[in-house]
């Protein structure tokens, strides 16, 4: 059953010269217990999309102007702030990028965890504390009885991220949104944190929306992937399919840009240019200016999304009417 569905979502930010559409027409869905990766460069709108699911966009600057976000069929966009608070942390939880700053520096770990536990359940402080210690043990923190009594600055980044995961898991959410959860960590710690997240996800059947720019993380963790570029999803589908036969030139470019440590020392592929600023998105395909397979039509007409079966979709003129099913450059 579909847990989360985002339907034709558009988000606008207030810009100096009128509203700027940062996310434009995104549709995706996430089944129960499934993991969906959202990949893209900085500024592609992936974090904005995840914040909009939590309805945590800065209200005075950003607004959902089109589309809907539904959790088990219930529209989150239309919920009141009070109703949304009952969803946050309880049904949807979030893990942030910077474990160094995502914990309040002036309170001990235990207090922050009990706050998370008691936010959505009527438990006594003592019960919550006991549960906090259990949770800490569960996320692989040694000596949890002692860790509840330390301040965040006494813990390493990896330990803090484990605490953040414990906090997010405190109310057993149906959906976990992880925004670059391993970006700020050492590579060895990254693997541990990903393993932990996968383990918890399996045990509890939590669905996960994983925002990252790291294709390796996606390959290791996700069932399906959505590739975002300039506020749009350009390709999505099963991870294996998308990685094996990428349809969109951007996806192909991204995959080629991953350093390979096997074979000869060749120069690393890079996609020339930069993501255009949201106020300067062209009328046609947004990737056209950087695309190696650019055609005349690309600059004028926004491409439609073409279906390759099994939910593998790609938004590119190369497949217009599927007549030109030529291989990608």
């Amino acid at each position: 059953m579909t847990l989360l569905s985002i339907d034709n979502l558009a988000i606008e930010f207030a810009g100096p010269s009128g509203p700027v559409r940062v996310v434009d027409g995104i549709s995706l869905s996430l089944g129960e217990g499934e993991t969906l990766g959202i990949v893209g460069e900085s500024g592609s709108g992936k974090s904005v999309t995840s914040l909009s699911v939590m309805r945590l966009l800065p209200e005075d600057q950003a607004a959902i102007v089109q589309g809907d976000i539904r959790l088990r069929g219930q529209s989150l966009v239309r919920l009141s702030e009070a109703e949304m608070r009952k969803v946050r942390g309880n049904r949807i939880a979030m893990i942030f990028q910077e474990p160094m700053t995502a914990l309040n520096p002036v309170f001990k770990i235990g207090r922050q965890l009990t706050e998370a536990i008691r936010q959505h359940s009527r438990k006594s402080k003592r019960e919550a504390r006991k549960e906090a210690i259990e949770l800490l043990g569960h996320v692989g923190i040694p000596l949890p009885e002692q860790i509840v009594n330390v301040y965040p600055h006494q813990l390493s980044g990896g330990m803090r991220q484990r605490v953040m995961i414990a906090m997010a898991m405190a109310c057993d959410p149906e959906l976990l949104i992880a925004d670059e959860p391993t970006t700020a960590l050492d590579v060895t710690i990254q693997a541990q944190i990903l393993d932990l997240m996968r383990k918890l996800q399996r045990e509890r059947g939590t669905a996960m929306l994983l925002i990252t720019h790291d294709l390796g993380v996606v390959a290791e963790t996700c069932d399906r992937v959505s590739v975002m570029y300039a506020g749009q999803i350009v390709e999505q589908g099963d991870v294996k399919t998308v990685f094996r036969e990428p349809k969109h030139p951007y996806t192909a470019g991204l995959l080629k840009s991953v350093p390979q440590f096997t074979g000869e020392g060749k120069e690393l592929h890079s996609i020339a240019g930069q993501v255009p600023h949201p106020s300067e998105f062209p009328a046609g395909c947004r990737f056209a200016s950087r695309c190696p397979s650019r055609m005349d039509v690309c600059e004028k007409v926004d491409p439609a999304a073409y279906d390759f079966g099994d939910g593998h979709r790609c938004k590119c003129h190369l497949y217009g009417g599927r007549e030109t099913n030529a291989g990608l450059a």
């Binding site: 939590m54 608070r85 969803v87 946050r88 942030f96 910077e98 914990l103 706050e115 936010q119 906090m167």
Partner: peptide, 12 residues
């Protein structure tokens, strides 16, 4: 700071 956003994400 991120911990403020984190508490909002917890529904505080």
């Amino acid at each position: 700071k991120e911990f403020i956003e984190a508490s909002r994400a917890l529904g505080v």
